[in-house]
């Protein structure tokens, strides 16, 4: 009897926590939506989504999200191009090639990598990486999209490596043995059998890494120069959605047009990360089947 009661209490507590998480996400979304919609009472939604100028303190202000959106996309795309091949290769090495002692060292090092605070990375970016890039690539300034992409790639690596590695290890041994039985070399087995079998898990890892990159704020605010220009190259200074919110939120009066505009930017960001996480989740589910 006693046991049954405690069982019941624990069960309902767990259920409550589960529902609470759903409620929180839903409330955050509602809150963002309410404040964003207040903007569109005074400002045309078309001008917000397709405007090419972000001039929040001018008279009249312009809240065109195109430069910010493209800024985020450029930095994120740059980071993906750098971190996805490196991340997957590192995961393949750890899962299939490295001897056990090296595997353990690498795994703990990657955990440490994940624990570096982003503001520290940003600081390294300002003091070392941006002058270095300016000099070696002959840029007019080192505060540009590429600096941000490199640092963000660094931040996304631990996520991509550990999830991809899990996926690779999870491929049934029989697959590999069958490949060896048919006379495949180690590389052939890894590249043609294990990697495709693990691909849903790897894609999930990549998507989660992208989610991390696109939502990162501190590093991009410190190193990308924050120019609200419609970017044409990653070697240019640019401004991201996240840096805009962080840089301007402090000066807005709650309830002003600028304040609502920043909420609308937040909503756009929320929708982007929601879609990315959704894709990652469906990939993970397919991987489990």
């Amino acid at each position: 009897m006693h046991r049954r009661i405690s069982e019941y209490i624990i069960e309902s507590l767990i259920r409550l926590s589960g529902f609470l998480v759903i409620a929180f996400v839903f409330l955050i979304f509602l809150f963002l939506l309410r404040d964003s919609l207040s903007l569109f009472k005074e400002y045309k939604i078309g001008e917000f989504l397709f405007g090419r100028n972000w001039l929040p303190i001018s008279e009249p202000p312009k809240f065109g999200i195109v430069p910010l959106f493209l800024g985020s996309i450029y930095v994120t795309a740059g980071a993906i191009v750098i971190c996805v091949p490196v991340g997957i290769a590192a995961a393949m090495f750890i899962a299939e090639v490295a001897p056990t002692f090296l595997k353990n060292i690498l795994k703990s090092l990657i955990e440490i990598l994940a624990a570096i605070p982003s503001v520290v990375l940003g600081f390294i970016g300002i003091v070392w990486l941006s002058p270095y890039l300016k000099q070696t690539m002959g840029l007019s300034t080192g505060m540009c999209g590429l600096t941000g992409s490199l640092l963000l790639a660094f931040m996304a690596l631990p996520t991509i490596i550990s999830i991809s590695e899990d996926a690779l290890v999870g491929v049934p041994r029989a697959y590999k043995e069958a490949a060896f039985g048919l006379g495949a070399t180690r590389w052939q087995a890894l590249w043609r059998i294990v990697l495709p079998a693990a691909s849903p898990g790897i894609i999930a890892g990549v998507m989660l890494g992208i989610g991390r990159v696109i939502g990162e704020t501190m590093v991009v605010m410190m190193v990308t120069g924050n120019s609200p220009v419609v970017p044409t190259s990653i070697l240019q200074p640019l401004r991201t959605l996240t840096a805009t919110i962080a840089g301007e939120m402090g000066e807005t009066v709650s309830g002003s047009e600028h304040y609502f505009a920043l909420f609308a930017v937040g909503l756009v960001l929320f929708i982007i990360t929601f879609i990315i996480n959704f894709i990652a989740d469906s990939c993970l589910r397919r991987a489990r089947k």
Partner: peptide
Amino acid sequence: NHDEFSPETLLLTSSQTIVEEVAANDAA
């Protein structure tokens, strides 16, 4: 006059960052 800062202008987060960038960049 409704001129704006050139959109290429870097918007930095503190006066100190401006000092750092100017000290390190001949063209700034």
